[in-house]
Design a protein around this nucleic acid. Structure first.
Lengths: 255, 255
DNA sequence: CGGTGTCTTGAATACCATCAAGTCTTGTGG
DNA sequence: CCACAAGACTTGATGGTATTCAAGACACCG
């Protein structure tokens, strides 16, 4: 089989068993299109793949991979939501970024293993791992790949800088509203938002929001019920509806 | 003359007037060595430079450049300290990163202009701007340049992620201690630290520390005097001495 | 059916911000 | 060289935002 690396903590399934669930059309962020063949995890038998790779699948709440696992592979999310998390020794957690379909775990993964963070599945997740050396060689060879790769990198760094500002200088209300609106943007790029009023799947638990915004779950709960009481948003059944876009935008951009 | 771009808000001096102050040997972070000739800002008359560039110099507290200025140039700090800052409409500021000699303003600058932030001189600063197109072409052409460029990028992203964790999940004491220790590391890479007890130039004002750690200047003052009272560090004359490295390290790594 | 995870709510507390006043330094122009 | 203004730092009093602690409701699952 094509299986290349065993990932600790991940309930791996072989490619064949989940063929069709790797929606490569969603790979907009990366736009590299290096998967073996669209919509199936199986390589065309006749032509060998330029980049060694393999598909995996983990259920919600399981760890996808740890930093140390990532010496020679680069994972990309195919379907589902995940989070890159830094854990501190006292048990508190900081979510550095949410990973949506099409996202590489981190663009720095091409060059370094990011030993300080781990990636956890929020929903059930299908992902694909690429051999780092092969991928690097391919990207170096094709300038257009390098460019789309750079775009992903700039996006990632921009989001990181924005998060720094949010955590450093904004209140709980602002942080939470901005987190939601940032996710709306990213989901919209992937056509995962239904419009008017804006509504979309939202699998995050309140503790995910807390870990991403540097708050406690208790306080997240209070802010969200306040948002609901003010008729700004509605959350139910793992989905969010933005009832009052301008009011909600005002909360997110109070300065 | 070789002067290529005028930067708004910067008191530019021509290359010749500050020859010798562009210590290109400090360009360790980038390690690209594309300056016209070491230690002078002037190109050898006989050989045309592969990358169009120019040297500038701004006094402390002045703005080096704004995001909008950076459509086609990439600045690199040659000497002095600077800060990349995001300003909010209510006047509060968040320092996204400190820039030391050898640092590119941001590695993403090669591809995008980062319109949301501005760069301010902390000390008197000499810096050099490179033509983006030229620099990009040069880097694409030479794989070893691309690699050292990627190293700088991984460093930058790692620091950004660490800052996210610090701002999201650490107390004021921890944030400030970690900021100082991170700067020690970066200065040590540049041979700008004297040892035993560790001592180094520290031009930051307390409001810089506040803007970097998401705190107020008042609270920074209280934490620093507490550090002094406990015999952890000593600050005077724009320099810091770490009196009790293990105690100070404990404060920085309480979790 | 107990166990676990999720969310809510209230009370008490901690951490840091805000406000204010005062000292000291630094720089500038007369 | 002095006078003045602006910036930098300190300290104390007060207040607000978010945390911690605790208890309970609810859903889901094996």
């Amino acid at each position: 089989m094509n299986r290349q690396v065993g990932l600790r903590g991940a309930d791996d399934h072989e490619n064949g068993s989940i063929a069709g669930e790797f929606a490569c059309s969603l790979c907009t962020a990366l736009d590299i299109n290096i998967c073996l063949s669209p919509n199936t995890g199986n390589p065309p038998a006749s032509r060998p793949a330029p980049v060694r790779q393999s598909g995996h699948s983990v259920p919600a709440r399981r760890i996808i991979c740890r930093g140390q696992d990532l010496h020679d592979i680069v994972p990309v999310i195919c379907s589902g939501w995940a989070a890159a998390i830094v854990m501190l020794s006292d048990g508190s957690r900081q979510i550095v970024s949410f990973l949506l379909p099409g996202d590489m775990i981190s663009t720095t993964m091409l060059f370094d293993s990011k030993p300080y963070c781990l990636v956890e599945a929020i929903t059930d997740v299908n992902f694909r791992t690429f051999n780092r050396t092969d991928l690097k060689a391919l990207i170096y060879k094709k300038p257009e790949l390098l460019d789309s790769f750079f775009r992903a990198w700039v996006d990632e760094k921009t989001r990181a800088d924005q998060l720094i500002v949010d955590l450093g200088r904004r209140t709980a209300d602002e942080r939470i509203a901005r987190l939601i609106l940032n996710l709306v943007d990213r989901l919209a790029q992937r056509d995962m938002v239904r419009g008017n009023p804006t509504e979309f799947d939202f699998p995050l638990r309140q503790h995910h929001i807390a870990d991403a915004t540097g708050l406690t779950p208790v306080h997240v709960s209070k802010v969200l019920t306040e948002f609901r009481r003010n008729g700004l948003i509605n959350i139910s059944e793992r989905s969010i509806t933005i009832l009052d876009p301008i009011g909600f935008g005002r909360v997110a951009n109070m300065r």
